[in-house]
Simulated assay, not measured.
Amino acid sequence: MRSGELARLAGVTVRTLRHYHQVGVVAEPDRDSNGYRAYDVHDLVRVLRVRRLAALGVPLERMPGVLDDADGDGRGTVDLLDDLDRELADRMDRIARQREVIARLRDHRAAPDVPPELAPFLAVFAAAGLPADVVRLDRDQSVLLAHFAGEEGMARLARFYERLSGPALFPVVAAVSDAFSRLGPQTTDEEISTFAETFAAALGPEIGGLGLGSEEDPTPDLGDAVEMLGRHTDDVLNPQQRRALQRLAEILEAATAP
């Protein structure tokens, strides 16, 4: 048989057959007088065995130990089958967790790249008709916060977002967000200070509470998050918005100073 015929009979491509040669699971046969490789039925059996092992998920590098088992009693494959079973069980667990995340995101019509724990609250922001730049800023910053909070801090972060999106605070959040989006070249220094003071009075306690932990609920280390959030806002906000946040930070720092 030529390589094309063997590949057809085995249900593989010639390229796959060549790959089997390269990794050493199927030996390359000698070439006949016209320079073509000559395969026989034993090569076909070998390729079919490789396909069966591949269908079970056996890595190519572990196949020779099975394929070259001279006795054919399978005594050398017990550990391999156990490993495959564990890998499949782990993969099924991962798939189940992925499906849970997908279901949560789909329930809230959330984008697949947002933290699923925050999806319900970000969905509230997105559905409220807030300015597009504010929604985009909230999404990107939530990605940063969720990453640096990690699993340990995610519960605290989710509670923070839950309070902001709840009926008591969300009207305030929406009003502040709308006012923030309107800051621009025509905004005066007095208006910037007024905005920062209004923001601090309305939401300062919630922001400050994010950094207050306890022995049972320790505060996550958000040092890197603060730095990255600063870089992010420096890049996407206009000068008046950056000054407003700087003034807000000064007010909050003064409020917590001893």
Rank of each mutant, 00 (worst) to 15 (best):
A202C: 10
A110G: 06
V58W: 04
L144C: 03
P116F: 01
E191P: 01
V124L: 03
D32C: 11
G11F: 15
N34E: 11
D73F: 08
F180D: 06
P29G: 04
P220V: 07
E250R: 12
A110W: 04
T77E: 06
T194G: 13
Y36S: 02
R49L: 02
P167Q: 05
H21Q: 06
A7T: 09
D68A: 07
S33F: 00
A149V: 01
D178G: 14
A126H: 12
P258M: 07
R49P: 00
R8I: 06
F180G: 08
R139V: 14
T233H: 10
G72C: 13
F121C: 03
A168Y: 08
D138I: 01
Q241G: 04
M63E: 00
G153P: 00
G230R: 09
L6M: 00
E100V: 11
R75M: 13
T198M: 08
V50A: 03
R86I: 01
S177R: 14
A196N: 09
V14Q: 13
T187K: 07
A89N: 01
S3N: 09
A132T: 07
L248V: 11
A149N: 03
V78W: 08
A89C: 00
F125E: 02
A244N: 04
F148Q: 02
E61Y: 11
A196H: 07
D82T: 07
D235L: 12
I95E: 15
L88R: 07
L81G: 05
E215C: 00
A103G: 09
E206T: 09
R182A: 14
G213Y: 01
L67F: 05
V12H: 00
A196K: 12
R243C: 06
G204K: 08
A128M: 01
T233E: 10
D234A: 13
V66F: 03
S193T: 15
L9M: 10
E197H: 15
Y20K: 04
T77A: 15
G11R: 11
L169A: 08
D32S: 09
D40T: 04
D189Y: 05
A155M: 08
D43C: 02
A27T: 13
R52D: 13
L67V: 06
D113K: 14
V14M: 12
R51I: 09
G35H: 10
E100K: 13
L6K: 00
H42K: 09
V25R: 06
M92Q: 15
E197A: 14
T194C: 08
T16C: 07
N34F: 05
G213E: 02
R31V: 08
S214F: 03
G184H: 11
L245C: 02
L48V: 02
R247W: 04
R94H: 05
R31G: 09
H232W: 13
L6C: 00
F125R: 00
H21K: 07
V45E: 13
F170N: 14
D73E: 14
D138M: 11
P59W: 12
D235K: 05
L17G: 11
L164W: 08
R75Y: 10
P120F: 08
R49A: 04
V58H: 03
R49T: 00
E151W: 01
V101T: 15
